[in-house]
Amino acid sequence: MADATPVLRTRGMTRVLPGEVPVTLVEDISLSIRQGEFAVIMGPSGSGKSSLLYLLGLLDRPTSGQLWLDGEDTSGFDEDRLASIRLEKLGFVFQFHFLLAEFSAMDNVMLPMRKLGRLTEAQQRDRAHGLLADLGLDGHQHKRPGQMSGGQRQRVAIARALANDPLVILADEPTGALDTKSSIVVREILHDLAHRQNRTIIAVTHDPDFASAADRQIHIVDGRLTDNDAWRAEH
C-alpha cells in the first residue's frame, strides 16, 4: 500500500542541546519514510523518541545533518519558512490535546485552515464539520474542550491535525494520557487513517498494541537508531 517515494528522509541528523554540559538528544539519524507508510518510533523513556519526532516535524532544527520533506532540503530554512511548511504539509497530535480552551471544537479545527486561508469560510466550516463527524463527534461541534471527555478532545485534536490535509501526521504518544477505552478509539482512528486513507503517519508510542498495527517499527536507544534485531536481543 505504501508507494516507494520517500516523503521524509534524513541523513546523519544530530541534535545537541547546547549548555555547560551539552546534551546529545539524537545522534546520526538516517532514515526515510515512504508516502503512505505508518511508522512507530519506540524506545525506553529518555531515549530521544520525542526529540526525533520534533525534528521530523520541523519543530526543532538539527545541529547537523539534513532533512528532506517532500523532496525539499529543509536545512538552512528560517523559522518562518519552517512554520509555513508545518502549516501546509504537517499535522500534529500530542499526548495532551492542546486545544484552545476558549474556542469550540469547530473553531479549534478551523484554526489551521484560517491561517492557511486557501478555502472560503463556508468551505472551512463544511470541512471542519465533516472531519469532526468522521471522527464520531457529530453533535459535539460547538462544545468547548472543557465540555468534552479526554477521548473526545483527542479526536478534536486529530481532526485539527487533518485540517489542511497534511502530507504527514506526527503523533507524540497520542494515547498516552487516555483511559483504556478512549485509547482504543483513538488507536482505531489512527490505524484507520493509515490503512484506509493511506496517510503517512509517524507516531511515538509505548503501547505495544498500538505499535503492532504499524507497517514499521523504528527503535531508538540513547538517541541512536538500533537495528531491529539487535534491539530485540538486548531486551
Partner: peptide, 16 residues
C-alpha cells in the same frame, strides 16, 4: 504559553 506553542507548532509565525 501552551496555546502559543501549539499555534506555532501548527504553523503560526512569530509575527502572528
Amino acid at each position: 504559553t501552551r496555546d502559543i506553542a501549539i499555534l506555532k507548532s501548527m504553523g503560526f509565525h512569530a509575527r502572528d
